[in-house]
């Protein structure tokens, strides 16, 4: 596989992992009401989620734009 493909898939994966991790782990965990659910476990986790989206979709940019060697 080309480096382009690797990086692209890598970015998608990183993005996906970021999204999944921040959504299910980093943000407020899956409890309905407890006090612990009012704070994300990791602050700025929602931003990381958005970052994940950004990274994942940026892969398309990279894939398209990256110069051939």
């Amino acid at each position: 596989m080309t480096k382009r493909g690797v990086v692209t898939i890598g970015m998608i994966l990183v993005g996906a992992v970021l999204m999944v991790w921040s959504y299910f782990v980093g943000a407020a965990p899956w409890c309905a009401t407890g006090v612990e659910c009012s704070n994300p476990r990791v602050e700025w986790a929602p931003a990381l989620f958005v970052l994940g989206v950004v990274v994942a979709f940026s892969s398309a940019l990279y894939y398209s734009i990256a110069k051939d060697k």
């Binding site: 959504y23 299910f24 943000a27 407020a28 899956w30 309905a32 659910c37 009012s38 704070n39 994300p40 602050e43 700025w44 929602p46 931003a47 989620f49 958005v50 989206v53």
Partner: peptide
């Protein structure tokens, strides 16, 4: 960006 909670339907809207 700092505190958004997945439990809130707004999470989907905002994020």
């Amino acid at each position: 960006f700092r505190y958004a909670r997945p439990q809130s339907p707004f999470f989907g809207t905002f994020s």
